[in-house]
């Protein structure tokens, strides 16, 4: 079952192609990451999903409804978190919660979330820290118990403890069958909670990957400390990149199978050897290399 379907989506701002024919599908009940650096087109895509801005081409379907023409129906079932908290400075948290509750209900869930996130709703927004503003924005997105959650930069401003509480909450929502679309440039976050991720660069979709598969695309950071001289040409093999060469030490990046390198290293006497797994960040950067 598909919860979100984006097909050949295009958005231009003048001559700038902010989003250039991207397509992907998000399954019902999955947590889907949307990865990319600033300016890649993540927020523009989300704004089209939310019908804040209109596409120049292509279509978006959320819960089998057109994001432009059935926007109101979709929003009945949708929770949204903006990249930076967009709140009324002169209102209290309670004013915001009452305002949303009058429009779409959800005060009981809001009370549960207030307790869970240890949020004080009596304080005016102008007196709240960025973390507390983010807490309130999250409560506002979740309080109506939506079927689809669109979260743009989820954990900005949250401390690690609260980040964990938020991840746990999202996992609970996922267990209830909620589809979560999470835009982020925080790779460990995506690695931790997402099932799949789309990678976007300069408005183009680079890949849609299963997170487990993405992690299988091993990248190793290898440091070799030789006892004696070595032949550099031995290491100029496929999948191995020589990064640095200092005082008899060699720093290498290995993509894919490491056994070929180990066979070559077996010919030498080593003083030491360090092999570290590259994180998702290294894997991610590989997509951006070209």
């Amino acid at each position: 079952m598909i919860a979100i379907e984006v097909k050949n989506l295009i958005k231009h701002f003048g001559v700038v192609k902010a989003v250039d024919k991207i397509s992907f599908k998000v399954k019902k009940g999955e947590i889907f990451g949307f990865l990319g650096p600033n300016g890649a087109g993540k927020t523009t895509t989300i704004r089209m999903m939310m019908d804040f801005i209109r596409a120049d081409g292509g279509e978006i379907k959320i819960l089998d409804k057109d994001s432009r023409f059935d926007s109101i129906d979709i929003k009945q079932e949708l929770g949204y978190l903006a990249p930076q908290p967009r709140l009324y400075e002169n209102w209290t948290g309670d004013d915001h919660l009452q305002f949303i509750a009058r429009i779409r209900g959800g005060m009981d869930e809001a009370k549960r979330l207030i307790e869970k996130f240890d949020f004080n709703p009596k304080v005016k927004i102008r007196n709240l820290s960025s973390g507390n503003r983010q807490k309130l924005s999250l409560i506002l997105a979740l309080m109506s118990e939506p079927k689809v959650l669109i979260l743009d930069e989820l954990t900005t401003g949250l401390d690690p403890l609260l980040q964990n509480a938020v991840y746990k909450t999202l996992e609970d929502y996922k267990d209830k069958g909620v589809t979560i679309f999470l835009s982020s440039h925080n790779l460990p976050e995506v690695q931790r909670i997402c099932d799949r991720a789309a990678i976007i660069k300069a408005g183009k979709l680079m890949a849609v990957e299963d997170i487990k598969e993405l992690k299988k695309k091993h990248i190793y950071d290898v440091r070799v400390f030789f006892e004696s001289d070595y032949e550099l040409n031995d290491f100029k093999i496929s999948g191995v990149e020589i990064k640095e060469q200092i005082d008899g030490n060699l720093k290498l990046i290995v993509k894919g199978d490491i056994n070929n390198l180990l066979k070559i290293l077996a010919k030498y006497k080593l003083r030491d050897l360090e092999i570290n797994h590259g994180g998702l960040e290294d894997i991610f950067l590989e997509f951006y290399k070209n």
Binding site: R86, L87, E89, I103
Partner: peptide, 14 residues
Amino acid sequence: EKGTMETILAQPIS
């Protein structure tokens, strides 16, 4: 300008 319009537009209101 203040960004609060997003809060309103995210609600199920035309």
